[in-house]
Design a protein around this nucleic acid. Structure first.
Lengths: 159, 159
DNA sequence: CATGAAAAAGATCCAGG
DNA sequence: CCTGGATCTTTTTCATG
């Protein structure tokens, strides 16, 4: 299940997970291997699915989305999750969707332009999905304290 | 505050937010402009802070982190947030940290290798931070339903 | 699996409109 | 703010150890 990553793999992940445009040759120099080696390793990691994709991270606040919230969703009894997920997926403002154990059936992360927009999305788009019993909103303050990627890639597995 | 993005800016953001290694020349072809134009636009977006950074997205499950949780944190009265944040930042398994309004003072996202590790992190690392009154954990199921970036960049602002 | 060298593709710079 | 072209950098391929 968990892939075995050696030191070089982890070093590569460390660099490219912080900056997807780091030149492979630069990583190669840091690691004292050839550029081709980095290229082959990255290729392998992509094939193994360890690397999912790459993306430029956009500052949502600067493109007009001033509000963000986590929302816990409680479902009615005997509801088929997948049907609800299908509806969730149709709402572009929702950027993450997870199943949870405990209090809520699902947990989502959603952006909105402002508080009014947030309320409209919850009342008009989410609460009206068949099967949704109720929701609880945890509104995040405008200031995101930090956001980063996990950087302790499989430390302790092998050497 | 919110930057005005025209159609071309949005198209560029659309492509590079899905794949940070999309060649600019390819985007240029799609948009019927020169490669230099894309280059200049991206530069501008970076300078404006609309583009924050780029990253390769790692599959945490494949590198040994089987568990993920959102955790709401309640603080004791009269606690200085920053001191708590400083402690939070020291825990590498925590990948997001936000202030929240309402029930909790803060909301974090944290990865762990397994349930035992998760519990250890909560009890030994988080609960012991001076000022933390209590925490509530929403454990996410192993299967992340989806995760994507917001793709409706400032739609409706200008043309 | 790594290497170095060669070929192909892309990024960056710049003068000009 | 765009363009085309020159130039420099990076990626990718491949034969070899």
């Amino acid at each position: 299940m968990a892939h075995t990553l050696d030191k070089l793999d982890r070093k590569i992940l460390h660099y490219i997970s912080q900056n997807a445009r780091t030149p492979f040759l630069e990583i190669a120099r840091e690691c004292n291997v050839s550029g081709a080696a980095i290229h082959q390793r990255v290729q392998k990691l992509v094939n193994q699915g360890v690397i999912r994709n790459s993306e430029f991270v956009i500052d949502q606040y600067k493109v007009g989305y001033q509000t963000c919230a986590y929302i816990g969703i409680v479902l009615k009894n005997n509801i088929e999750f997948q049907a609800v997920v299908d509806h969730i997926k149709e709402i572009p403002e929702i950027v993450e969707c997870h199943y949870t154990t405990g209090k809520y059936a699902m947990f989502i992360k959603m952006y909105a332009k402002d508080n009014r927009h947030l309320l409209r999305l919850i009342l008009d788009k989410i609460s009206t999905i068949p099967g949704v019993a109720n929701t609880e909103t945890f509104q995040l303050s405008l200031e995101e304290i930090f956001r980063r990627q996990l950087s302790t890639f499989g430390v302790d597995e092998e050497k």
